[in-house]
Design a protein around this nucleic acid. Structure first.
Length: 113
DNA sequence: CATCTGACCTAGT
DNA sequence: AACTAGGCCAGAT
């Protein structure tokens, strides 16, 4: 018996947190990793999100940016649904691949969830 | 099969 | 305060 408990849980957990992000708000990989209890596993979060495109229900991965508010993951988004465009559609101002007023737009899953 | 890379972050020097 | 190194874990070469 293969116990795939950890990977499975982590994956589902990331999806759950990302789906909990309100419209017009953004969060960071580190914040997600931290709320999951793996503050240094932020890389894994990115890997999971990369797989999240085919997930059901859809995961708003475009609301996740790095700690500096930069859209580092934009390059991995499909051309039909650019990261910046979706954020702008929710009222988030993007300039030079960076979220403007990131401090106010930041949504901390650990504090607010 | 060994090595490196990658949607990053924290901690130590 | 700036820089280096380490961590996390799976996929790709």
């Amino acid at each position: 018996m293969k116990d795939t408990h950890d990977d499975r849980s982590f994956e589902q957990d990331v999806y759950d947190v990302v789906r909990a992000i309100p419209e017009g708000r953004v969060t960071s990989y580190g914040a997600i990793a931290k709320v999951l209890g793996a503050a240094r596993a932020s890389r894994r979060v990115g890997w999971v999100l990369n797989k999240s495109f085919g997930a059901q229900p859809p995961v708003p991965a475009y609301r996740v940016v790095n700690r500096l508010g930069m859209l580092t993951g934009a390059i991995h988004f499909p051309a039909d649904q650019p990261m910046a465009a979706q954020l702008k559609a929710e009222g988030v101002v993007i300039e030079n691949d960076t979220v403007v007023d990131f401090g106010a737009r930041f949504w901390d899953p650990m504090t607010e969830l």
